[in-house]
Every structure is written in C-alpha cells, then in structure tokens.
Simulated scan of single mutants.
Amino acid sequence: MMRFVCRAAALRRPVLVIAMVLAFGVMKLPTERALFVQHRQLHFRDVEFNLDLREKIGQLGFIAALSGFRSIVADALYIQAHVAWERTEWGRVLLLFRQITTLQPRAILFWDMAAWHMAWNASVAAMNDQTQPRLALRVKAQREYFALGKDFLERGIKNNPEKPQLYDALARLYKEKYEDHASAFEFYAKAAVLPGAWSYEKRFAAYELSYCEGREREAYERLRQLYDAGKNERLPTLITRLKFLEQKLNIPNEQRIPENAH
C-alpha cells in the first residue's frame, strides 16, 4: 500500500510541474504580446543570432554579441573599417560594414557611412583604377559600388523608417550618382514629412521635381508655395528654377515673380 502511494505521488510531481509551466506560459502571453506590439511600433528588428550572423562576424564576435556586447563589437569593427578605408581596401570595408550594420541595425551613422564609402569613395576609386585599362569595366565596377551604397541605405530605411537622415542620403545618391531626379524628389519628399527633418528637404524635393519631364506644373506650384512662404526660402536656385518654369509653362506676366526677385 505504501509503495502504491509513493508511486502515485511520484507520478503527480511531473504532472504538477507541467501544469505550473503551462500556467506560467499562459500568464506570460499578455506581456510578450505587449512587447511584440511595442517593438513593431518602434520598428525594432532584433539581431538574429544564427549561423549566418556567426559567419559574418566571426566566432569571437559572435560570442561577444551573445553576451550582450553588440555595441562594443560594432564599434571595434567600425574602427577596423576606418583603417581599411585609409588603406583603400574596399572589399574589407564592405565586409566590415555588413557586419556592423547586422549588429547595430538601429544606428543611423553606420548605414550612412557604409553607403558613403561604397557609393562615393569606392566608386571613385574604381573609376580611377589605373590597373584596369578598359573603361567599360571601370564603369561597371563604379555602378556596382553605386548599387552597394543604395542597398545599404534601403536596408537602413527598412530598419529605421521613422528617421529622415537615410531618406535624405538616398535622395542625394539618386541625384548625384544616378541623375534620377524623380527618385531624388521622392525621397527628399519622404524625408521632409518626418519628425526631425532638415528645413531644406521640401525645397530640395521641389528642385528635383522641376527637372522631371511632364511634372512641371506640380513643381511650379511647389516652388511658388515656397517662394510665397517668405524671404528665407527665396534662395538663388529656387528663384532660377521658378523663373525657368514660369517661362516653360507660359505663366501670365502678372502672376510671375518680379524680375529682380530676391
């Protein structure tokens, strides 16, 4: 009889433990759900600690990241990237910034610097590469670096959609490297409506739109609205583009800005 009681008690213990675990899990659900919603609202994307990350940052870096030292590892890699830039080791710069942005996807500086090194520095180096006599191959390499810079900015925006800085950088890349005024307008305009945007974003968006064939009327209205906002907006480029559109759209003389506008 005593043996039966002991056996029954032994069987009840695992059942009790399982029940407690299940109850604890149910109690945690509202909290975990609230945290998940908060992370989604903040556009927070956790780093996934998987084999892909381990391959990107190496064994020691992976261990450090697991230990909660992601920012320290990222800063150390950033210093290495700076040294690689000074040595014009563009492949290493690319690799290091991929590691850095993987570890710290919410750090605007890292995405911006990665794009700058690729789309501006490395692309110029590729175009001026004296070891490559064929112009077509130098142009191809240059375009590939443009694309790498663009990719960094696009992924940075996905991780930080509420920050205007990367939209601004992507607009500048489209303007200066691709001469794509429509896309430059799009991203300057997106930056302009975000909290913390620089005051020039609306003006730059209007400038870029003024170069887009078929959108002259919209550009004119934007530029005129800025002009009417006051003297602080009446910069030489704005006045030049506005007068150009007045001429192209045959705006009546009485509706045009003064000839000596400033």
Results as ranks from 00 to 15, higher is better:
R3Q: 09
F4M: 12
C6R: 08
A9L: 14
I18W: 13
A19H: 08
A19C: 15
A19Q: 08
M20E: 13
V21M: 14
F24I: 13
F24G: 10
V26D: 09
M27S: 12
M27W: 15
E32A: 05
E32K: 10
A34W: 03
L35V: 08
F36G: 09
H39D: 15
H43E: 05
F44M: 07
D46V: 03
E48T: 02
E48M: 04
D52C: 02
L53F: 01
R54M: 01
K56C: 02
I57A: 01
I63E: 02
L66I: 01
F69N: 12
R70G: 00
S71G: 09
D75L: 00
I79D: 00
A84Y: 00
R87K: 09
L94A: 10
Q99K: 02
P105K: 00
R106S: 08
I108L: 04
F110D: 06
F110H: 10
W111P: 05
M113K: 12
M118N: 02
M118F: 00
A119F: 01
A122Q: 04
V124E: 13
V124F: 10
N128L: 15
D129N: 15
Q132F: 03
R134Q: 07
K140T: 07
Q142Y: 07
R143A: 11
E144S: 09
Y145E: 08
L148D: 05
G149C: 03
G149Q: 10
F152N: 07
R155K: 15
G156Y: 00
E162T: 14
P164I: 06
Q165V: 07
Y167H: 13
Y167E: 04
R172Y: 08
L173H: 11
A182K: 12
A184H: 05
F185G: 04
L194S: 04
L194M: 08
A197Y: 09
S199M: 07
E201G: 06
F204I: 06
F204W: 13
Y207G: 08
Y207D: 13
E208L: 06
L209V: 01
S210Q: 03
Y211F: 14
C212V: 14
C212L: 11
G214W: 05
R215W: 08
E216Q: 12
E218R: 11
A219I: 02
Y220I: 10
R224I: 11
D228R: 13
D228N: 15
A229F: 02
A229P: 07
A229V: 07
G230H: 05
K231R: 11
N232S: 15
L238D: 04
T240N: 09
R241A: 08
R241P: 12
F244K: 13
Q247E: 09
Q247A: 15
N250S: 14
N253C: 15
E254A: 14
E254W: 12
